[in-house]
Write a protein that binds this DNA or RNA. Structure first.
Lengths: 223, 223
DNA sequence: TAGAGAATGTAACATTTGTTACAAATTACA
DNA sequence: TGTAATTTGTAACAAATGTTACATTCTCTA
């Protein structure tokens, strides 16, 4: 295979190695190498291609007005850069992309990739699944962040877990993970939960929560 | 034309009326009428079709554990329901959908719609544009909500406006709109801004902001 | 151009969350 | 099974935001 990592990419899932090779060969791609520290993409640059990390790793990084940089995330093979944004209206890269180590990127033009999807229904469905799943994820996160208080977030969260109707749910995350998910600090979350307990809304035993007062709990998760 | 509203739909943009008719006819669609108040979709139901509002209007609505409902948004022709989620992994409707007035929905199976996109590159690009643009929008919103303080949100916001480099930006929203965008209350935003002004970070004249101390302002928009 | 409505500026107080620190309980694993 | 690491519970104080209310300024239009 030309680029063996690709068979682990969700974009090419369901395709045989030979089919992947065939697809890549049928299109005008390039692969570009970046030495460690090199800039692959500048924030604000128009997204004109699909870029997939083949080897090494790159990072997304923002620059503020004084030129100081803040790392956003690392991207490893065989992930694509800004995959869910590619075909957006006037889509631009939201961050700078810098090579962490020597890295190689596979680059396929937007419209060529569109052609590929047009020719292979599986590729199309893979990409659609990726983008839609991303939208679902973002929308879900947004819902939690848009609740004002921690009580609201927590009430909404446990209400959405399986078992909520029966009045007993189990949270399969650590408090820290849940706090991060809500965008709050752990002690604040612990406090809010213990206050809800002493208010008689819920009863908590580590990760197991019993819902005692559905009515009052529900008034918390309103808009 | 069979469904005249469709030529105003972004999904079919760039297609002639005749082409739209041709596409619709080539596929196994149904149109279903819902009397006012009828339930078109129950939250949690798997998304198995593309559903486009043809006439009337419907609303998205959430139900809490006690059965009380909260309206989320109204959807008018020719918008589609949960368009960005359709092909997500185990995609389910996030809300109940109820007819506000007598309403008619065009229903096309997911996989049939996939075939349509496969057969018409413009339709495919239209849909991809819609989903990716939605992901961009959600991601953008999320970025602001993930900044802790109002100062951080504001600093990041004005830094991203054209003119930030020259040190002078104009905000083309009302304070209320900006507050909503940030997910905070208007008086809190006004206070934060006026404190930043008395701290010498910026100088504000209604909607025109001059950046006085870039360095200190930038330290606010860090993670 | 007067007047109504919208947008903005500001203040006092209540509420919520963050911060920091430490103890207790649990879990992983050597 | 005992010890280290992780997770959870809790407290006191600081900081930020919400709430409510009102005055001021701007903007649109009759």
């Amino acid at each position: 295979m030309k680029f063996p990592v690709l068979n682990r990419s969700p974009l090419f899932s369901g395709l045989s190695d030979a089919e992947i090779d065939g697809i890549i060969d049928s299109v005008n791609f390039r692969s570009r190498s970046f030495p460690a520290g090199a800039v692959a993409v500048i924030a604000g640059e128009e997204i004109s291609s699909v870029m997939i990390v083949l080897s090494g790793s790159v990072r997304g990084e923002m620059t503020d007005l004084t030129g100081k940089t803040i790392k956003i995330e690392d991207i490893y093979p065989p992930q694509a850069l800004a995959a869910a944004f590619i075909y957006g209206r006037e889509a631009r890269y939201p961050v700078n992309v810098i090579a962490n180590t020597d890295a190689e990127l596979l680059i396929i033009g937007k419209s060529e990739f569109l052609t590929l999807m047009n020719n292979d229904r599986r590729l199309l469905l893979n990409y659609l699944t990726a983008v839609c799943t991303r939208a679902l994820f973002l929308s879900d996160r947004l819902r939690f962040l848009s609740f004002r208080t921690i009580r609201e977030k927590y009430a909404h969260y446990i209400s959405s877990l399986p078992g909520a109707i029966s009045g007993r749910v189990v949270i399969n995350r650590t408090q820290q993970e849940l706090a991060d998910y809500f965008g709050v600090t752990r002690p604040s979350l612990a406090r809010a939960v213990s206050e809800m307990e002493s208010d008689g809304l819920i009863s908590v035993d580590r990760r197991e929560v019993r819902i005692l007062d559905i009515r009052r709990l529900s008034t918390l998760s309103e808009t």
